[in-house]
Design a protein around this nucleic acid. Structure first.
Length: 130
RNA sequence: CAGGAGGGACGAAUCUGCCGCGCUGCGGUCCAACGCCCAUAAAGCGCUGGAUUUCAGUGAGGAAAGUCCGGACAGGACAGGGCACCCUGCUGCGGAAAGCGCAGAUGGGAGUGAUUUCAUCCUGCCGUAACAGAAAACAACCGCCUGCAACCGUCCCUGCCCUCGGGCAGAACGGAUACAGGUAAGGGUGAAAAUGCGGGGUAAGAGCCCACGGCGUCCGCCAGCGAUGGCGGGCGGGUACGGCAGGCAGGGCCUGCAAGACCAAGUAUACUGGCAGAUGAGGGCUGCCCGCCCGAUGCCAGGGGGUAGGUUGCGUAGAUAAAUGGCAGACCGGUGCCUUCGGGCUCCGGAACAGAAACCGGCUUACGGUUCCUCCUUUCAU
RNA sequence: GGCUCCAUAGCUCAACUGAAUAGAGCAUCUGACUACGGAUCAGAAGGUUGGGGGUUUGAAUCCCUCUGGAGUCA
């Protein structure tokens, strides 16, 4: 489904225990600077979905965790057209630094994550085709 | 002016624009199921649910936090009563209640002070260790004093002997020892040593006695709603702190919105052990007892299987992976550089503590700042 | 979100009813033994009892509060 604007609705988030467990068990992992990611194509939904996580281990206070999750979601919202193919990709993003980074650095990390994921998804599709 | 004490109010506290998010509402579009019309049709209409969208409204805090109390609500249980158990304990008022608030009382601590902090019903018992100290709450010990017995010394007195120098015995005084008693004034310690000072008194002493204090208790009067305080009088030998037990008064069933209700989906009570029986097994009533209730194949313990989705509970913020962010500009404050002193450029900041997950009243803890009121101390001026 | 519990030497645990030098084992260090090492023997070091207040003459212990870490629920 092609969304015209840079919107970010609830259907683009992963809800439900089954989907999360499937992603964690069958997904492929990787990392780029401050972000770890885990993705899985062909999620059965009509669009790409993401899940953002900031560990309590790094940030004890809920205010900082919420702030980082908002920045990550915002950077995905503005760049989500880069992620294509794969018939709907589930993507888990985990913040992996103890430092409280600003929006610009998170946005740069998000750019590299999205390009890596699209590359790996297209390679997987080529292997499946063979 | 400076420093400080108490209390209150506010807390994205600069503004604008764009993009984006949760919820609600009136609409639009699309999809699905059902109903009406109807030919088991299409189209249309109605209703329900979902998605999307224009517009409008609304969208975290004083602590939302910690989960320390209490309430309401929900479920389980409950005829009722007694015992046990737990919590609290000065007084008055407020409050649904509270390890709650306000105002006060008494005593102790901190502070020059404003102020602050801790404790508080009744009775009994026990303890205040080790070390130190005589002794840790009864007393004993050292010391002081008296009496008595024997010993030593001295002068005076008496008696005897006498070589008239003196000797012996008794009594008195003094010394040391032992025994019997009186004392709790003094005894370096210690956190703490059972009433201070003065006088009398005594063998030595002692509330033993007296005056002034201090403490406890009783009575009377006065003040106060009361805790209590003041004054006067009587009596007293005690007290302080801590622990335990009992009593009195008040309160308390247990579990908690992951409570609970409904819908959908889905499975197997497989197996093992124990117990018992209509003469009442067994279970429930928080533990026990009385008592009551249910009551026929049941119960207990272990072990195994399935689902962990939706609606509601749930709120004019409100979900069920959790909504407030990003960018740009203006403005304000600060730093640095340049300057033709008009200004220009760069950087930083515009906040701290911190994010509702069922609700309400308190407590506690964290916190940048703004502001108001009352008061204290020091200095200066008047 | 609710409820329950824990924190002591580098590690695993003790310390009764508050009572004075907080104890034991392993680990570490030093010395002896040995040609060297291990084992053994002797000795030493190592503690703001998670932090801060309070009660008390005295707190690991009792009370309050904060921090950190576990467990559990339908």
């Amino acid at each position: 489904m092609e969304q015209a604007g840079h919107t970010f609705r609830k259907q683009e988030r992963i809800c439900g225990k089954k989907d999360i467990e499937r992603l964690l068990q069958e997904g492929r992992y990787g990392h780029a600077s401050c972000l770890r990611y885990c993705f899985l194509p062909e999620n059965g939904a009509s669009c790409n979905r993401i899940l953002v996580s900031v560990p309590k281990k790094y940030f004890k206070r809920a205010v900082r965790r919420n702030l980082l999750k908002r920045r990550i979601r915002e950077s995905y919202r503005l760049r989500k057209t880069m992620l294509q193919g794969g018939h709907g990709i589930d993507l888990l993003l985990i913040y992996n630094t103890k430092e409280l980074l600003g929006y610009s650095e998170i946005s740069r990390a998000m750019e590299t994550v999205l390009t890596e994921v699209t590359d790996r998804v297209s390679k997987m599709e080529v292997q499946d085709g063979q």
